Every structure is written in structure tokens, then in C-alpha cells.
Simulated assay, not measured.
Amino acid sequence: MLINAKTLKGYQLDGSEGVVGKVKEFYFDDQHWTVRYLVADTGNWLTGRQVLLSPYAMFLVNKKAERIGINLSKKQVEDSPSLGSDKPVSRQFEKTYYGYYGWEPYWSNSYQWGASSNWIPGKEVWKLSDKEVKGWDLHLRSSNDVSGHHIQATDGEIGHVVDFILDDEMWAIRYLIIDTKNWWVGKKYCYHHNGLSA
């Protein structure tokens, strides 16, 4: 099912033993255009750190109730590797994070979800070519930071990013919503990410 990222912001994150927080933003990689982490706003519960939740932990997105079910306890989240609220997500942090939960790293091979390419049965997965894998800088992008970026066509600028449309089963970015008001007044368009670079 497709969902606007801005709509997802504020969804309640329900753990196995209570509410963990609410969705604040997300990090995605710019090769597979896949959401790697939701950033949780935990209020006063866990202050001074970014609380990251991988799609591996998510089992239900309820649009009507504006909730996402995660199969982790508050204790698991609290004891997970800590990342400062002002720091980028490093590969060293990710290795520690994935090791803590015992999950297969998504960067372990060229498939969208690493060696666990069939983690969602019956769903198509994306695979990078060997050339793309060698050139992949493994850099994560913040949805907040990318919002507002200008999109350049072959013959000039067409607008700027205002939102993302996500597939909430594969956690992939399917489209970018581009505001073209400076080029074509009153128009917004969806563009597939193919051919774009963040």
C-alpha cells in the first residue's frame, strides 16, 4: 500500500509492551531508495539520542488508527545501541545496531534487503548490478534534509522535493512529490526516483 511520508509523520509506534513513541522522520539509502530506519520521537522517555527502528521490526501499518506495530519491547529499544541526536548514522553504528538485534544487514549483498531478499514472501525485490554495488557509498539520507532539494532536469530546474510516497510493505520510496510552482504555477507532480540522485 502506498502512503505519503508526511502522513506517516506522527504515527504512533506500538511496541510489544506499550508505546515506544511517534514517527519523526526517516533515513533512506539513495541506491535502492529504501527506508532503512524510522526515527522515533520518544518524548521524555529516551532523551538526547536518536531512536532508530528498522523495518525488520515492523509488522503492521494501520492508516485508519495512524499506528505502526513493532515487534520489540521498550526494554529492547532502551538497551539498543545509542546514537546522539546530533550525529549522522555511521556504518560502525549500523553494524553494532544490526548485531544487537541479530538481523541480516541490508548491505550484505546487492539485493534490496541483503541476503534476506525474501523477507517479505511473494514481493519483488530490487537488485543492484555489480558495478552499482562497487560504486555504492552506503550513504543514508534524512527525509527532512532531502525535503526542499531542487530537482534538475536535462534542460533546467523543475521544482523542489516536498514529500515522498512510500510502499509500506517493502519500505521503498516509489515516488517523489515535486512542487513546480516556480516553473508551472499551482502544479505538483509525482516523479519516480529512477534517474534521480539525492
Rank of each mutant, 00 (worst) to 15 (best):
R91D: 13
S73D: 07
M58H: 01
W45I: 10
E124L: 13
N71W: 15
D155Y: 15
T154C: 10
K22P: 01
W113N: 08
I3T: 09
K74L: 13
E25D: 13
G69E: 02
P55H: 00
D86I: 00
D79K: 11
S73G: 05
P121F: 00
L196R: 00
S82P: 04
Y100F: 07
T47P: 00
K95H: 05
K74H: 10
I3V: 15
I68F: 00
G99Q: 13
D79L: 12
V89M: 06
W184S: 10
K24L: 11
H160A: 07
E78D: 03
V89C: 10
K127F: 01
I3G: 01
L72D: 03
L72T: 00
G114A: 00
D86P: 01
K188G: 04
V19F: 03
V19M: 15
E66V: 15
Q50N: 06
H32A: 05
K6M: 05
Y106G: 02
P55D: 05
K95S: 10
Y191R: 11
G159S: 11
L166Y: 06
S116Q: 06
E17W: 03
R141C: 14
I178F: 01
F28Q: 01
Q12C: 07
G159T: 15
H192C: 12
I178Y: 06
V125G: 08
C190D: 05
K87F: 02
E169F: 03
D130F: 09
R174N: 11
P105C: 02
L38Y: 05
T180R: 02
I158S: 09
N44V: 04
Y106S: 12
H192A: 14
V61Y: 10
E157N: 08
V23L: 10
S108A: 14
Y191W: 08
D168T: 14
I3D: 06
K87V: 07
W107M: 10
T154W: 15
V51K: 01
E17R: 04
E124A: 05
D130P: 15
L2C: 02
V89H: 02
K24E: 08
G135M: 14
W171L: 10
K187L: 09
I70W: 12
H160Q: 12
I151V: 15
G156E: 07
T96R: 14
D130I: 13
S117R: 15
G195M: 05
L38F: 12
I177Y: 02
R36Q: 12
T154G: 09
W184M: 15
F93H: 06
W107N: 03
V39K: 08
V162Y: 06
G21S: 10
S54M: 11
G186M: 11
A153H: 13
K75N: 14
S73C: 06
V89F: 01
D167K: 04
G48W: 00
S142K: 01
S147H: 13
I173N: 05
M1C: 04
M1T: 11
G148D: 13
K64P: 03
S108M: 10
E17D: 15
S85K: 03
